[in-house]
Simulated assay, not measured.
Amino acid sequence: MTVLRSGFPHRPARSLATVAGALLAILSLLLGLPSAAGAQTPRRAPEPAHPGQDWAGSQIAKHEGTAVGTAPPTSGLAASVEGVDVSSHNGNVAWSTLWNSGVRFAYVKATESTSYTNPYFAQQYNGSYNVGMIRGAYHFATPNTSSGAAQANYFVDHGGGWSKDGRTLPGALDMEYNPYGATCYGLSAAGLVNWMKDWFATYKARTGRDAVVYTSTGWWKQCTGNSSAFGAVNPLWIPRYGSSAGELPAGWGFHTIWQYTSSGPTVGDHNRFNGAYDRLQALANG
């Protein structure tokens, strides 16, 4: 064995280079840096850290300056039906109490991304149905964590399906401000529109129904460029905590559901279906 004057064994230069290269590759992988060959390691956003705190409208007040509202006047409405939407932050819901107060339909959060399911989903989804309500499920979208198709499939597989039983509404896609970072999830307007097209197409292929889209006009303008691609097909569920639904996103001439107040964790957010009860039944029946 060749021995250096220092007294340590000599290691061939090739061996040292191999070790150094391996260490550099590991460091690049951990930090998401380009590798020695110049290739960028693809990176997905981490899965949501607090999905139980995300629900339809949870980010609207934070970004649009809306506050907890009260029931708007009913004057001028030809007909409407009262509803609520709930998620895990509402816990076990007293459905009989809501029914007795006049609530006739409910939307329940089922999923978020491809990793979260609402632990109270069964109590909320089945409980609303069992007291006589027309019910539906919704998915909180995180377009930076996986594809539209992947999230639609996850939604359908975890409570977001549809059946023509006369009391199940089509699923809804919740598109709102990102609770984890960049408002528009780091995607371009075209990228977000294509992501939604992927989600809606997959949902329809799985269920036969065109899903509802939940979104605010402010987010829609900012993040989709005020796309008019969905108004002719997907019913609009719009949040606005005031005396009217206000300006609608491009493509929609009217809203189907208006989330008019966020009343806190015990009773859920309140909504109004834009039409008589038989029209709500028609939406359920497809």
Rank of each mutant, 00 (worst) to 15 (best):
Ala94Asp: 15
Pro9Ile: 04
Tyr277His: 04
Ser75His: 03
Val103Asn: 07
Tyr241Cys: 02
Pro9Trp: 12
Tyr277Met: 13
Lys197Asp: 13
Tyr177His: 06
Pro48Met: 08
Asp278Pro: 00
Lys109Arg: 08
Gly251Asp: 01
Glu47Phe: 03
Gly246Ser: 05
Gly253Asp: 13
Gln281Arg: 15
Asn234Lys: 05
Ala71Asn: 13
Ala182Met: 00
Val68Leu: 13
Phe121Asp: 12
Arg11Trp: 15
Met133Gly: 02
Ala172Ile: 02
Phe121Pro: 11
Thr168Arg: 11
Ala110Ser: 13
Ala250Glu: 12
Gln222His: 02
Gly136Gln: 00
Thr97Cys: 10
Gly171Gln: 02
Gly57Met: 04
Asp210His: 12
Gln40Met: 06
Leu16Ile: 09
Tyr203Lys: 01
Met175Val: 11
Ser35Pro: 02
Tyr107Met: 11
Arg43Lys: 04
His139Trp: 02
Thr114Trp: 04
Trp219Ser: 01
Gly231Ser: 05
Pro12Trp: 14
Thr256Ala: 09
Asp165Trp: 10
Asn274Ile: 02
Asn226Trp: 10
Ala172Gly: 05
Val93Thr: 13
Ser115Asn: 08
Tyr177Glu: 02
Asn130His: 06
Arg209Val: 01
Val68Ile: 14
His63Gly: 06
Asn90Asp: 12
Ser35Leu: 15
Ser216His: 01
Ser228Tyr: 05
Thr215Tyr: 05
Ala232Glu: 02
Arg240Glu: 03
Ser58Lys: 03
Gly136Val: 05
Thr41Leu: 14
Ala17Leu: 13
Ser216Gln: 02
Ala13Pro: 15
Pro34Val: 13
Ala13Tyr: 13
Thr215Met: 07
Val93Lys: 08
Pro48Val: 08
Ser243Ile: 08
Thr111Pro: 00
Asn271Trp: 00
Tyr120Ser: 08
Leu173Met: 07
Asn194Phe: 01
Cys184Gln: 07
Gly136Ser: 09
Gly166Leu: 11
Tyr185Cys: 03
Gly231Ala: 02
Thr97Ile: 09
Ser28Pro: 01
His158Val: 03
His139Pro: 01
Ala282Glu: 06
Ala25Thr: 13
Ser35Thr: 15
Ile60Val: 15
Val213Met: 12
Ala13Ile: 14
Thr256Glu: 09
Thr142Gln: 14
Ala250Met: 12
Trp199Gly: 02
Ala152Trp: 04
Ala245Asn: 10
Thr66Lys: 00
Gly268Ala: 04
Ser228Phe: 06
Met133Asn: 01
Asp278Arg: 06
Thr207Arg: 10
Trp220Phe: 10
Leu33Ile: 07
Pro34Gly: 14
Met1Ile: 14
Gln259Trp: 05
Val93Cys: 06
Thr145Ile: 12
Asn90His: 05
Trp219Pro: 03
Lys204Val: 07
Gly52Trp: 11
Gly166Tyr: 05
Phe105His: 01
Val68Met: 14
Asn90Lys: 07
Phe155His: 11
Pro239Trp: 00
Ala250Ile: 06
Thr266Lys: 03
Asp165Ile: 03
Arg44Leu: 14
Cys223Ser: 11
Gln259Asn: 08
Asn178Trp: 09
Glu176Thr: 00
Val212Arg: 07
Leu27Asn: 12
Trp95Ser: 01
Ala122Gly: 07
Asn92Met: 07
Thr70Val: 14
Gly171Pro: 02
Trp199Arg: 05
Asn100Lys: 15
Thr215His: 10
Ala110Asp: 09
Ser15Arg: 14
Ala79Ile: 03
Met175Ser: 04
Gly148Asp: 04
Gly275Gln: 11
Ala149Cys: 04
Ser146Phe: 06
Gln281Ala: 15
Ser163Val: 15
Gly38Pro: 10
Lys62Phe: 08
Ala45Val: 02
Leu23Lys: 05
